[in-house]
Nucleic acid binder design. Structure first.
Lengths: 119, 119
DNA sequence: ATAATGAGTGCACACGTAAGCACGTATTAT
DNA sequence: ATAATACGTGCTTACGTGTGCACTCATTAT
């Protein structure tokens, strides 16, 4: 009673049924993208590696908040760190993530400027 | 003090700075994708329109849960509905969303099978 | 008409989590 | 040595949110 994906050989595009593990992993990533401050941080990092102070300035969030968010991003493996003197420089670890961020913003732009599309 | 994205019109790829509205919109969409049940539902809908009962069966979630999630998705404009006798058939409204779902699962698959990549 | 099925909704509860405060740590400057 | 800068981290509080229960509405069958 878990997956009822039809047994026919129709090659729509996704023969795989998502097991709980994959769903949870994807969910975790999406959850990391579901906070404005975090998404802003990731968007900034998607363009250039940056240290914490710069992220604080550019996001307008508090140092604590940025640090906490960076900790989560680091813990989730979405960003990597590099020490430079007393600065810690953050970078996006995965190119896939950059695409997700960009597509998300793109989709948002589509919704904001375009259609109110309600039911 | 590390590197600050210059204010000039350098065409790296993203001349736009994300205003709060765009960030919030994208965040809202990502939040809709950040629940396992909802992501499962969207994945199912990404393949074929489906009624509520079928979604209940295939996700293994309770009717209440599925209904609530569908209400949120409907309210966010991510799905559309169509009545067929006493069934309500749901569909994904935007092709962008399908791409996001697929990329998210793809990224997840990458992370699960591939690298444990921790620091 | 009544019964049954499919779907949606208010309510209560439990849990996760974002934000601010205060403090600790590491590195550089004087 | 001390002071200052750059980050990180428990702690508490407040809020959002996912889920189950019970109930209602709509549609179809008998």
């Amino acid at each position: 009673m878990e997956n009822v994906q039809p047994a026919d050989g129709s090659s729509l595009h996704h023969p795989d049924t998502p097991d709980a593990r994959r769903l949870d992993t994807a969910t975790a990533t999406f959850r990391m993208l579901s906070d404005p401050t975090r998404l802003h941080i990731l968007w900034l990092l998607a363009q250039d590696p940056s240290d914490v102070g710069s992220l604080v300035e550019r996001t307008g969030a508090s140092r604590t908040s940025v640090s906490q968010h960076l900790a989560k991003l680091r813990f989730s493996g979405l960003v990597t760190t590099r020490k430079s003197s007393r600065h810690v420089v953050y970078s996006i670890s995965d190119g896939h993530l950059t695409r997700l961020v960009m597509e998300g913003l793109n989709h948002a732009d589509h919704k904001v400027t375009g259609e109110p599309a309600h039911d």
